[in-house]
């Protein structure tokens, strides 16, 4: 009897087979470290070479990194707690009024 997991892997596209490591658990757990270190590297670049910008606040070393991190978290939190929290409805919400969605 064939193993269902093996059967599933047989259906993987040949072009995808060299990239199956993208689904590896070690990669998923280490992503936070990879991006953490990279963020520090790019912040560090500001201390090596002073960045010039039209906007004074943007000349603070690492400004874009702080703003990017904060913006991302803020966007997710507002989306989660404000949009989903207040405006989420069942998938068939519009169907109930005969106004299919």
């Amino acid at each position: 009897m064939s193993d269902p997991a093996n059967k599933k892997d047989e259906l993987v596209h040949p072009l995808a087979k060299p990239f199956l490591w993208l689904d590896a658990k070690w990669l998923k757990t280490s992503m936070i470290w990879i991006f953490g270190v990279l963020t520090l590297v790019f912040i560090g670049a500001d201390f090596v070479h002073h960045r010039h910008d039209y906007i004074p606040i943007a000349e603070i070393p690492g400004f874009y990194a702080y703003w990017g991190f904060g913006a991302f978290v803020l966007a997710v939190m507002i989306g989660w707690f404000v949009v989903r929290g207040l405006l989420e409805r069942d998938e068939d919400y519009w169907d109930e009024g005969g106004d299919h969605d």
Partner: peptide, 26 residues
């Protein structure tokens, strides 16, 4: 800086369980 830090934020939120699940809703 902007993009990598934002990606770091994504991995951070996912690791902490603070990223919203995809739900069948509107």
């Amino acid at each position: 800086q902007l993009l990598i830090a934002a990606m770091f934020a994504f991995t951070f939120l996912v690791r902490m369980g603070w990223y919203p699940d995809e739900k069948r809703s509107i």
